[in-house]
Computed example of a mutant assay.
Amino acid sequence: MTKNPPLLDDLPEQEDERGFFADQPTRRPRLKPPAEPISLADEKPGVSAKTSDEAHYHGHRDRLRARYRDHGDTALADYELLELVLFRLIPRRDTKPIAKALIDRFGTLGGVLGAPIGLLTEVKGVGEAVALDLKLTATVAHRMLKSELKGKTVLSSWSSVIDYCHAAMAHETREQFRILFLDKRNALIADEVQQTGTVDHTPVYPREVVRRALELSATALILVHNHPSGDPTPSRADIDMTKTIVDTAKPLGVTVHDHIIIGRDGHASLKGLRLI
């Protein structure tokens, strides 16, 4: 079937339309600025860098807990044990750098737990609440060691006595004079800090020591004090003071079994050194 030719009236209109589109200037597409670099985490839809970081340290926490569960504390370094404690205190941060900073600052795990709150809070990432909880952990450890002495013959648990005194005093920044009061079976009646002094001296009053022993009906004493310098070597003043207490207590039926000096890395026994 033959098509009808186009109407003449339509031609000018078609030519005008072609001219209109032909005369328009060509517009170049506007180029977008180059995209900023993205991390590997951003390449995955819906995953941010922050989410990736959180996944990393949560995975690390799970692995550390698993190692502790399966192998005990011997499988972990000191800073990793500290991490396990910090997990509870700082739930939404990577605690490994904080644990390492604490160990670097105070030397050992015991040094961290024995440090004063004011010094703990000087470490980046440790606020007052975290510092208080670390001291609470230290207190629980001290009470646990002390409970090992209760009701037992102290002289037959000498290593427990040393462990307890070391945990309680080795990292103190000032000298303390502590007395363990014993009954006639040499079981622990009381443990008291009688005096706290300066970095290198504590005033001790022998009459007050003996008076307190009589108040508690104690028949024997173990004297303990610390040297914040770290060196437990007894000084001449330590020896003389001990002999004065021995001489004051003996006529009243109170025996001084020993005077232990605690340092950060060890201890000295005046009895073991044959100084009393």
Score class of each variant (00 low, 15 high):
residue 5 P to Q: 06
residue 8 L to K: 15
residue 9 D to M: 03
residue 12 P to N: 10
residue 13 E to I: 08
residue 16 D to T: 11
residue 17 E to G: 11
residue 19 G to I: 07
residue 19 G to T: 09
residue 20 F to M: 11
residue 20 F to W: 11
residue 29 P to L: 10
residue 31 L to E: 14
residue 33 P to Q: 00
residue 34 P to I: 04
residue 36 E to T: 14
residue 37 P to F: 10
residue 37 P to T: 07
residue 39 S to W: 09
residue 40 L to Q: 10
residue 43 E to V: 15
residue 43 E to A: 15
residue 44 K to C: 15
residue 45 P to E: 15
residue 46 G to Y: 08
residue 47 V to Y: 11
residue 48 S to P: 00
residue 55 A to T: 10
residue 56 H to M: 07
residue 57 Y to S: 06
residue 58 H to F: 10
residue 62 D to S: 13
residue 62 D to P: 01
residue 64 L to C: 06
residue 69 R to T: 12
residue 69 R to W: 05
residue 70 D to R: 11
residue 73 D to I: 12
residue 78 D to G: 06
residue 79 Y to K: 10
residue 81 L to R: 13
residue 83 E to K: 09
residue 88 R to T: 11
residue 90 I to C: 04
residue 93 R to P: 13
residue 95 T to E: 01
residue 96 K to F: 11
residue 99 A to H: 03
residue 101 A to F: 04
residue 101 A to L: 04
residue 103 I to A: 07
residue 108 T to N: 03
residue 111 G to M: 00
residue 111 G to H: 06
residue 113 L to G: 02
residue 113 L to V: 03
residue 116 P to Y: 09
residue 118 G to Y: 12
residue 122 E to G: 13
residue 127 G to M: 03
residue 129 A to H: 10
residue 129 A to G: 07
residue 130 V to Q: 12
residue 132 L to C: 04
residue 133 D to N: 15
residue 136 L to H: 06
residue 137 T to Q: 11
residue 138 A to P: 00
residue 144 M to T: 13
residue 145 L to C: 00
residue 146 K to W: 12
residue 147 S to R: 14
residue 147 S to A: 15
residue 148 E to H: 13
residue 151 G to A: 03
residue 155 L to W: 05
residue 162 I to S: 01
residue 162 I to K: 03
residue 162 I to W: 00
residue 164 Y to M: 14
residue 167 A to K: 09
residue 169 M to T: 14
residue 169 M to L: 15
residue 169 M to R: 02
residue 170 A to S: 12
residue 172 E to D: 15
residue 172 E to R: 14
residue 175 E to G: 02
residue 184 K to M: 06
residue 185 R to F: 01
residue 185 R to W: 02
residue 185 R to G: 08
residue 189 I to F: 03
residue 190 A to L: 09
residue 191 D to I: 02
residue 191 D to Y: 04
residue 192 E to D: 14
residue 193 V to F: 03
residue 193 V to K: 07
residue 194 Q to N: 08
residue 195 Q to P: 00
residue 197 G to C: 02
residue 198 T to K: 02
residue 200 D to P: 09
residue 201 H to C: 05
residue 201 H to N: 10
residue 202 T to E: 08
residue 204 V to T: 05
residue 205 Y to I: 09
residue 210 V to S: 06
residue 210 V to M: 07
residue 214 L to V: 05
residue 214 L to S: 12
residue 215 E to Q: 15
residue 220 A to S: 14
residue 221 L to M: 05
residue 228 P to S: 03
residue 229 S to L: 05
residue 233 T to L: 06
residue 235 S to A: 07
residue 235 S to D: 04
residue 236 R to D: 15
residue 237 A to E: 13
residue 239 I to Y: 01
residue 245 I to W: 07
residue 245 I to V: 13
residue 254 V to W: 04
residue 254 V to S: 03
residue 260 I to Q: 00
residue 261 I to S: 01
residue 264 R to H: 13
residue 264 R to F: 07
residue 267 H to N: 10
residue 269 S to T: 05
residue 270 L to K: 01
residue 271 K to S: 11
residue 272 G to L: 00
residue 274 R to A: 14
